[in-house]
Design a protein around this nucleic acid. Structure first.
Lengths: 183, 183, 183, 183
DNA sequence: CAATAAGCGAGACGGTACGTCTAGTCTTATA
DNA sequence: TATAAGACTAGACGTACCGTCTCGCTTATTG
């Protein structure tokens, strides 16, 4: 690993290396411990460089986490409620499945770290609003609980039952929610 | 603090003291650190007595947590699907709201601690089976996703949106899920 | 391992098993830790049976140690000073070499345990007196330092230089001490 | 207690503070337990700093011990064998008498702790070599057993007979050993 | 012969220390 | 002046061991 020094300006490459290292450790299938020393070593960076720019280990982890989860998943279907909802859920489930390690780690942190909680709340609120917008465009009245049902299943599987977020489940859920919706 | 020795049998009083101490520290408003030494000291117990019966600090915490949440919530309603489901959800929401701090702490732990994960999974599985049993008794076919939606909303509010688990929401959710049900 | 109960009288077989187990652990070439649990397990005895009869682990060890080292080593030679001294030292060296593990353990304990110190002092005093008697029988005047030189070499090799206590050294030492002796 | 940080180089002041703290605890007349936590606390040091540089508690204790006994005792006499040997032994006996508590503690440890044994062996070997050098400079052939007798008497009195290491004994021992010597 | 007394094997317990691990701070030397 | 390196303080973790305690059993002794 080689990286040019940048003298007295913040070294952007080092910042990226740190986030990459943190992300790699979080997603490590062997379950490597996410320690500051490990992040620093993997990034080829001194610990001080981490603490110069982030206030704590959790801040680094969250930063890495959110960077990964930012990819927006909204897809559109055939223009019917059932079709659009199915497309949305299928793509959401697939994205969550891909980012499983990141999302569960972030949500775990958020239960004890106020900073993490706030960032995650903002992240999930944006997602809820996307789904709520979709439902309202189709004329669904009072879509609040419906949104919670959809994301509830998604997160419940991520964090508690650890069941897979497969395409079939997304499609069946879309059917049920469509049946329930009042237009 | 005095406690009778029980010789070569496990000392049930010590077990209870340990769980009480752990719960007290977790719920401590002053934010005392939940350390094994602190639990042992508060329970008047040697550390080894903790590690003899639990594999890690997190196992103790979860055990304490779940004991608090164990108050079983299965209430029955008027014998109709809508009535029984409403009664179940209202009581579940109320219980979860009361044990909010415990449940979120437990679920947070479970995201990083395998031991905690396993115990929580067992806990939630029992709850799911209770609800699934209720639905099956009313002839609902394929109740899996209904169960996940119910608990999904509950945990989503606990951990991510932090909205209250009030009676009104439980009642409205029961109505919606009844509408989804295929008999 | 089976051993008859003896009812309300002390079980002599258990006492012996305990001392044997302690001795075996002390002499273990693999360097097994001499713990009370290990002694009890190896003797097939409850820990309480040990503590009923000895006040501490060190008391047990010392008891086992002294039992082993009691074999008296005084041999006689051809009746000349040189011959008798040689015989005495050769047999002393051989005995110390055989009981090396016991003697060093006992002397190590004695540096910190007053009880061990006292017992060892008594043990070594008897040995010194045996050698002093031999020398006096041969008309050596003022044999005090000579005795210390002989046992000094023996214990120095046991505890500090860890050199072997071989027959050749004993013989050469006897020659030197004879040369030095004033009759 | 204040101590400058030294960045990425070993902090020599911390090393000295640790050895001082260990020595103080060993010599404590109140019989304070020599624990690593106590050493660390008294030295104002984290435990890790101790374990970074010494493999075990006993290594620290021995290091502290030997540092105290390192005052080199080689004195020269009048240039004759008898004179130089007398000077050497008198000064060695006096030093050993002063460091009695340290030396017996160290030797006691060394009987059960391999790390301690190794360091003490190195320490005593250096002493033996000093005396052997002195004897060889005076043309003594095969001085091995003479050296062992000298240090044998010294340690025997320290550890087993607990007799004083007075000047008179040193002088008489020098005479006897001179008488033994073959030139 | 029943009742009692004590020794025994087992093993949980309170306590204390060990040696390891990690977070976050600090200093040096380099670029 | 930012950085890599890595030593440092602080303190929790999980393990090992000591000496105490109780249980349930067995065998002698006593009444």
């Amino acid at each position: 690993m080689h990286r040019e020094h940048t003298g007295r300006r913040r070294n952007e490459a080092a910042r990226q290396d740190i986030l990459d290292a943190a992300a790699a450790l979080i997603a490590d299938p062997a379950g490597a411990a996410v320690t500051v020393d490990a992040i620093a070593a993997r990034a080829g960076v001194g610990k001080q460089t981490i603490y110069r720019w982030w206030p704590s280990k959790y801040a680094v982890m969250l930063d890495a986490l959110l960077e990964r989860a930012r990819a927006d998943v909204v897809e559109t279907g055939d223009g019917t409620l059932a079709g659009d909802l199915t497309a949305f859920l299928v793509s959401s489930f697939a994205g969550a499945e891909r980012g499983r390690a990141f999302l569960t780690t972030a949500a775990g942190l958020a239960q004890s770290e106020p900073a993490a909680r706030e960032m995650l709340e903002q992240f999930t609120r944006r997602r809820r609003e996307a789904l709520r917008g979709l439902l309202e465009r189709h004329g669904v009245t009072d879509p609040g609980l419906l949104v919670e049902q959809a994301y509830g299943v998604l997160w419940y599987r991520l964090m508690l039952s650890h069941e897979p977020l497969d395409r079939g489940s997304a499609e069946r859920l879309a059917v049920l929610l469509t049946r329930q919706a009042v237009i």
